[in-house]
């Protein structure tokens, strides 16, 4: 590659040349590697540690039209104390109008408040609205902003528009961390996932996130693998570390542990912390807690003994 990363984004042409100059993804290879790594057997004490680590990485999420302040408060209470001496989760993730409620509920606990913004989940709105959406969420107390990219612009080749939007939203975030949702289920190919990952990182993303959870397929293992490779290569090129957050469709402890194995094998220890890897999920937490109880008591746990959420 001839261009240095500093001026890659100086024009649409250089950006396009850079992203399309990235090596293509070996689709079969990526699928096979993800499948192979997911057969790793993690048992007993390693499993116990993996479960606690996974709990501490969860972004406990509720993104429903029917969300109420009461539901958000209940979720925050669970985030602070998921179960008997289980660690706190990393963050709670809510819609912008409920950020204030969540921020009050988790104040002083170390649990972060993440808010989706920028006309989530479709991202179909004007830049002014997206920036205002972000600024209001930050003002209400959000520590992290989950923005969606404009998939329409990305797919039609208007990469500069996607880039500039991320830059603008990043500016509106101020001190808040920015997670950029690629919505990989709509990107059509693994090559596009890799390009979108680099694009988001070039534009200043602190985290890249797979999906909104509203589109299927959401977070699949091969897609997470490709994104992990992207953040690893990006750090090698630039020295800046970017986090990864698979979200949507991760429901069982087994899924979560497969993702942790993937992180460890792709990026190594540096990413195995809630600062650099998150799991966006809602029902996953209960399964983690049930598995945790199984390890502690020896008997399989039942959903009757965990919260309905």
């Amino acid at each position: 590659m001839t261009t240095s990363l500093a001026d890659v984004a100086s024009s649409g042409a250089t950006l396009r040349a850079f992203l399309h100059g990235l090596p293509g993804v070996d689709r079969v290879g990526a699928d096979q590697r993800a499948a192979m790594l997911s057969t790793r057997s993690i048992k007993t004490t390693a499993k116990a540690r993996a479960i606690d680590l996974a709990i501490s990485m969860v972004d406990l999420t509720t993104l429903e039209g029917a969300d109420t302040p009461g539901k958000v408060r209940a979720m925050c209470a669970k985030a602070l104390r998921p179960g008997e001496d289980a660690p706190q989760v990393a963050a709670v993730c809510v819609y912008p109008d409920l950020v204030a409620v969540a921020a009050e509920a988790v104040a002083g606990s170390g649990v972060k408040v993440a808010s989706v913004a920028t006309a989530f989940p479709s991202g179909r709105s004007s830049l002014e609205v997206k920036v205002a959406d972000t600024a209001l969420a930050v003002a209400a107390g959000a520590d992290e902003i989950d923005m969606v990219i404009d998939r329409g612009a990305f797919l039609s080749g208007d990469l500069m528009k996607v880039h500039d939007e991320i830059v603008a939203v990043k500016a509106a975030c101020g001190a808040a961390h920015l997670k950029v949702i690629l919505e990989t289920g709509e990107l059509a190919s693994y090559d596009n996932v890799r390009r979108a990952s680099w694009l988001a990182m070039l534009a200043g993303a602190d985290f890249i996130k797979t999906s909104t959870g509203k589109v299927s397929p959401a977070a699949t293992l091969p897609v997470t693998l490709i994104m992990l490779e992207a953040v690893r290569d990006f750090r090698e090129r630039t020295g800046r570390q970017v986090g990864v957050k698979p979200a949507g469709g991760i429901r069982t402890t087994k899924d979560a542990i497969k993702h942790l194995v993937l992180v460890n094998e792709t990026c190594g220890d540096d990413w195995l912390s809630p600062d650099w890897f998150r799991l966006g999920a809602s029902s996953l937490l209960n399964d983690l807690l049930m598995q945790r109880q199984k390890l502690a008591t020896g008997r399989y746990a039942g959903p009757d003994y965990f919260t309905l959420d």
């Binding site: 008997r299 399989y300 746990a301 039942g302």
Partner: peptide, 9 residues
């Protein structure tokens, strides 16, 4: 025994 101890039975 494993079914007897299962909390969802």
């Amino acid at each position: 025994p494993s079914l007897a101890g299962h909390m969802d039975v």
